[in-house]
């Protein structure tokens, strides 16, 4: 039996009077990629931000068997949770290498000696970052920034990596590269919770999927099932239903 890594039950997030996420429940098993798809504004980013502790929420969040609900963002990072937000949040005025080192901040505080080693691993994964190691993060192209954001996240050696729209605004070739890197990560033991507007790609690389609509989980199932579900095809994998019908 696989080990349960993250258990979320009845998670609610409110913005003022608006319930942005309502009674969301989901699970992530160790070593798997789980995707959450859904239309813009359905509450996908809100869900990840709540899991990371950036937004206040109500409900159960259990990670590696312990309750996370009251922990600060920093505590969650040191417990092995890591979020790459849609906005990347890089340190634009610092070098690529400094950005990566800071990714390992919690490990450094613990006195971890393997940080140099991790740095070369990230450079091996994204050789382009090594070429740019002394450049400011702000001077990178969109694809390189996404690589840096991923690399910085990996530097914390997360148990669960949460990615918010990693393909956002990137050219198709780069999207391909990034998605490959993500699906390769699974083999290194990292579990991933992925949010993608590119629903087809998300379902292709993930093991299990959830569909979030208007803040509620509308549908879930193994990714291959979802990819063949007529309702999903109509709403997310095609544009309208028109051309399939005709």
């Amino acid at each position: 039996m696989t080990e349960r890594l993250l258990t979320v039950r009845d998670l609610n997030v409110r913005y003022g009077k608006v319930e942005a996420v309502y009674r969301a429940s989901l699970d992530v098993d160790r070593g798997t990629i789980v995707s959450v798809i859904g239309p813009n504004g359905a509450g996908k980013s809100t869900l990840l931000n709540a899991l990371m502790g950036v937004l206040a929420s109500r409900g159960t969040v259990e990670f590696c068997g312990s309750d996370m609900a009251r922990l600060t963002v920093e505590r969650r990072v040191s417990q092995g949770l890591c979020l790459v937000p849609e906005t990347r949040e890089l340190f634009a005025q610092m070098s690529v290498e400094d950005n990566l080192e800071l990714g390992a901040f919690t490990r450094y505080r613990r006195g971890d000696k393997g940080i140099r080693q991790s740095l070369s691993e990230v450079f091996a994964l994204f050789p382009r970052l090594e070429q740019r190691r002394t450049q400011f993060a702000g001077s990178l192209s969109g694809g390189e920034r996404q690589m840096l954001a991923l690399g910085r996240a990996l530097m914390s050696q997360p148990t669960l990596l949460m990615l918010d729209e990693p393909s956002l605004g990137l050219a198709p070739l780069i999207v391909k590269e990034i998605l490959h890197a993500i699906s390769d990560l699974r083999s290194t033991g990292v579990s991933i919770l992925l949010i993608e507007q590119n629903a087809r790609a998300a379902l292709q690389i993930s093991d299990y999927g959830y569909v979030l609509e208007n803040g509620e989980i509308a549908l879930e199932g193994p990714s291959s099932d979802l990819a063949n579900n007529p309702r999903i095809i109509e709403s997310y994998l095609g544009i309208g239903g028109g051309e399939e019908a005709s």
Binding site: S167, K176, N198, G238, G240, G242
Partner: peptide, 14 residues
């Protein structure tokens, strides 16, 4: 709705 380039952009070629 039936423009191939648009379909490609929205679905993404992986």
């Amino acid at each position: 709705r039936s423009n191939p380039a648009v379909l490609e952009a929205y679905l993404g070629g992986v």
